[in-house]
């Protein structure tokens, strides 16, 4: 893999102002994504994974502050003027948002919503845009074409809406797509369909992707690398196969054995709220192997024998 680095974050911190103080949703994040690579960010709700996705898209709410850098081809998008960034967003950096049910404009036909992406970035006239839209819909396996393009969002099922969103996100053939929980709320069969289509679109345009999810099956099917997040930090990071087959961090081990097919052995306790982060290793209150040292010393990401596999545990690789 000699491709160029597309997105790189450098000591990224995202903080939110709350009534009595600040919470740190993303803590010292150093990740990079190469061209055409899929990085999957796995974590529980409230661990800061969506905050990271939104910070790349610069869609953070007003009460958030960002420290550190996010480089897109070496240019820092954190400090880029809004005008300049707007040229990137949508065309080179796109997103497929989380809730299919509410992310489409209910008053506009779904075909038209995809047309608009083409009109904004590529095509000049409407009929050419519609042609492209229909081609894209066909690739995504949407039924009843071309009539479906004239339907309003409420006339589509959840899985179909999600696929229309995938179409909107990929229409401009962006170099980088942030996909936030693409399968949330979808049932088994539909989930599978959406994953297949996202994977297909990704390989078609060879776009890089940041996939945010809490579902390991999605991660396994689509991603090259996985980063596991817990309470605002990356706790393990490595190639998908290595992380899933030889997990190193106790949290990763925990969630993998919590899957139903592995006999759902639960991890004790609850994830800490970002307002009450434990001292030392953030996972120590729930860790089965925690020692005294874990309660005081905050571990750094440690290398493990395999290349590019790191884990934030004092006893990693031991």
């Amino acid at each position: 893999m000699d491709s160029k680095i597309l997105i790189q974050t450098d000591h990224l911190y995202v903080q939110f102002a709350i009534p009595n103080g600040k919470v740190c949703a993303v803590n010292d994040l150093n990740l990079s994504i190469k061209e055409g690579e899929v990085l999957c960010l796995v974590g529980e709700s409230g661990c800061g994974k969506s905050a990271f996705g939104n910070s790349i898209l610069r869609l953070l709410p007003d009460n958030a502050t960002l420290q550190g850098h996010i480089y897109y081809y070496g240019k820092d998008i954190v400090r880029m003027p809004e005008k300049e960034f707007r040229l990137l967003r949508g065309k080179e950096i796109a997103c497929i948002p989380q809730s299919a049910a509410t992310s489409l404009n209910p008053l506009i036909e779904c075909g038209k919503q995809v047309d608009e992406v083409y009109l904004l970035h590529k095509e000049k006239n409407k009929s050419a845009a519609r042609k492209n839209t229909l081609r894209l819909f066909k690739m995504l396996g949407l039924p009843r074409l071309p009539e479906l393009a004239g339907d309003y969002p409420h006339e589509l099922s959840g899985g179909m809406k999600q696929r229309v969103l995938v179409a909107m996100g990929t229409a401009a053939e962006p170099k980088f797509i942030v996909v936030d929980e693409p399968t949330k709320g979808l049932d088994w069969a539909r989930k599978h369909e959406v994953i297949e289509r996202i994977g297909y679109m990704q390989s078609m345009h060879n776009s890089a992707m940041l996939l945010i999810t809490h579902d390991f099956s999605v991660a396994e099917l689509l991603s090259d690398r996985i980063a596991i997040m817990y309470a605002g930090e990356v706790v393990e990071h490595g190639e998908t196969k290595q992380v899933l087959q030889k997990p190193q961090h106790p949290y990763t081990k925990g969630i993998i054995s919590a899957l139903p097919q592995n006999g759902f052995k639960a991890i004790e306790g609850f994830s800490p709220a970002l307002t009450e982060i434990p001292s030392g290793c953030r996972f120590h209150p729930r860790c089965p192997n925690a020692t005294c040292e874990c309660t005081v010393q905050h571990p750094e990401l440690q290398k493990i024998n395999e290349p590019n596999h790191v884990s934030r545990c004092l006893y990693a690789g031991v």
Binding site: E44, S45, I255, L259, P260, F264, A266, F270
Partner: peptide
């Protein structure tokens, strides 16, 4: 989330075992 799911399912299982309750579990997850 996955880890919470495991806790809840464990809990339900324990209850079934202890209280001898019947269960109708509706789900799309095989």
């Amino acid at each position: 989330d996955v880890s919470v799911q495991a806790q809840i399912l464990r809990l339900l299982q324990n209850i079934m075992d202890v209280n001898k309750t019947a269960l109708l579990f509706v789900s799309h997850d095989l």
